[in-house]
């Protein structure tokens, strides 16, 4: 057995194969990921095959689903199927962008506050608490009133900038407890700089939690942006799941029994967010050996 290779790799995590083993066998994880994964693929691929402009008037209004229009047409004669798949894509985009922004801010604030402590921690805490209590809808209305029109990017940035406080708090708490462990002290004694300690020593111990947090923020972003769209605060002329529902209700789809206009987007939102939450619970079981059932 050669002895020179022993010091080369040290970043392999504890039994990765064990994680994969349990992951593949966890029903919640598999089901949840399948649903979300399927919808993601639809969001990426389907718009390429559907009619290019989902807002185009393609046929007679309020047609029920048929062979020519898979999901029927809207009050205005637009193709619901085309709107759905494009809406899916937009919702996913906002989810990834918004969730991503929230994640970056939450980790930056959480790690800094937890690791540095002292005055820095107290200031960041105040900032987090203030943002937690601000009513975001009111803020959106006020800001929206000043802008000429909102866009997808604005919506994503707004969602991201208001959704991070709870995650930052949780990350801070974990960082605080990890930073007092001796291996962090040993890293300091080895001349390693603070940022490197946070990224290299502290974060890997929280990797499962960070992963779960991202998924939650992602799902949350989709749901919140759909709600904003539904209330009419989304980008105008944009096609998103929430927007479809907004228009459907505004034009009395319920009373006119045009169910194919609002039911598909509603189911899609439920499926994505529900699927993500179920995935999250499943992942928690995979990462936490105590929750696993040994069969």
């Amino acid at each position: 057995m050669s002895t020179d290779t022993t010091t080369s790799t040290d970043t392999t995590t504890a039994p990765r194969h064990e994680l994969v083993y349990f992951a593949l066998r966890n029903r919640k994880l598999v089901i949840g990921l399948s649903i979300v994964g399927f919808l993601a693929i639809v969001a990426i691929v389907a718009p390429l095959f559907a009619r290019s402009n989902p807002n185009a008037f393609v046929g007679p209004p309020m047609q029920p689903p048929s062979s020519s229009y898979l999901l029927g047409t809207t009050y205005f004669g637009q193709d619901v199927y085309s709107q759905l798949v494009n809406g899916l894509r937009q919702s996913f985009l906002v989810g990834v962008m918004g969730g991503g922004i929230a994640f970056v801010v939450a980790t930056a604030v959480g790690f800094t506050a937890g690791y540095r402590g002292g005055a820095v921690d107290e200031v960041l805490n105040m900032l987090t608490n203030v943002l937690l209590v601000i009513p975001t809808l009111a803020l959106l209305i006020i800001i929206g009133g000043y802008l000429k029109g909102t866009s997808i990017v604005f919506e994503a940035v707004f969602v991201g900038a208001t959704a991070w406080p709870w995650a930052a708090r949780a990350i801070r708490a974990q960082t605080l407890s990890l930073a007092s462990r001796d291996f962090v002290g040993l890293a300091r004694l080895s001349g390693v700089r603070s940022w490197r300690i946070v990224v290299g020593e502290v974060a890997p111990n929280m990797s499962s939690y960070l992963f779960l947090t991202f998924i939650l923020l992602f799902g949350n972003a989709i749901l919140i942006s759909a709600s904003y769209d539904f209330l009419g605060f989304g980008p105008p002329n944009g096609v998103s799941l929430g927007n479809m529902m907004n228009l459907a209700f505004a034009w009395n789809a319920l009373q006119l029994h045009v169910w194919w206009w609002f039911v598909p987007p509603g189911i899609a939102i439920m499926a994505i967010v529900g699927g993500l939450y179920v995935t999250n619970v499943g992942l928690d079981e995979v990462f936490n050996p105590k929750l696993r059932s040994v069969s």
Partner: peptide, 21 residues
């Protein structure tokens, strides 16, 4: 046990030194 990052192998305490010094 607290001096070693549980996510990594014990070699890490040496590789940290190697990198820095």
């Amino acid at each position: 046990f607290s001096c070693y990052n549980p996510v990594f192998r014990v070699d890490r305490i040496f590789t940290m030194l190697e990198r820095e010094y």
